[in-house]
Amino acid sequence: MPARLRSFIGTIIIIIMVIVYAILATSYAAANLAESPWWVHLLYFIGTGLLWVLPAMALIKWMAGRKPTK
């Protein structure tokens, strides 16, 4: 697969993934953490704010492709 096509597909997937993830994480917090103290909200959003990076890293690695061999 050409590198430009792989980058385009990966970019679209990352955008969709971040939007869906943000909606799900916020919906969960609104439904289950409404009465929690501020520090629980802080810890939850720090954790969920960093958690989406793991699948994004794998997708970016795929987008980069294989390193050329010498």
Rank of each mutant, 00 (worst) to 15 (best):
I46G: 09
I13F: 10
A30Y: 09
W39A: 08
V40H: 11
W62N: 02
R6V: 12
E35R: 03
I19R: 05
A22P: 00
I23A: 15
W62G: 00
S7T: 03
A25Y: 01
V20R: 13
R6M: 10
T11M: 10
G49C: 04
G65P: 02
A64L: 13
L50M: 11
L24T: 12
V40I: 14
Y21A: 01
A29I: 01
P68G: 03
V53Q: 04
A34T: 00
A64K: 15
T69D: 08
G10M: 06
R4F: 08
A64F: 11
W62S: 02
I15Q: 04
L33G: 02
R4Q: 12
I14D: 04
A56F: 03
A3P: 00
M1L: 14
Y44T: 01
L59N: 04
G10E: 08
M17S: 05
I46L: 15
G47P: 00
H41S: 08
A30L: 05
M63K: 07
P37S: 09
I9Q: 09
I46N: 14
F45H: 13
A64N: 15
L5P: 00
A29W: 01
A34N: 04
P68S: 12
A30R: 12
S36H: 06
R6L: 06
A58L: 11
W38V: 08
P55L: 03
I13L: 12
Y21Q: 03
I19Y: 09
A3D: 07
K67T: 15
H41R: 05
N32L: 02
S36W: 00
I9R: 02
A25W: 00
M57N: 13
L33Q: 01
M1H: 09
E35H: 07
A64I: 08
Y21M: 01
P55M: 04
L24Q: 13
A31V: 01
A22V: 03
I46D: 10
T11I: 06
M17Y: 15
A25P: 00
L43T: 08
S27P: 00
Y21V: 00
P68H: 03
R4M: 08
V18G: 01
R6D: 03
L24I: 13
M63N: 06
T26W: 12
M57E: 11
T26I: 11
V53M: 08
L42S: 04
I14N: 03
A58N: 13
R66F: 04
L24N: 07
W62Y: 13
A64M: 14
A25V: 07
A56W: 03
T11Q: 06
I46A: 15
I46F: 15
M57L: 15
A25K: 00
A3M: 07
S27G: 13
M17N: 02
A25E: 06
M1N: 10
W39E: 13
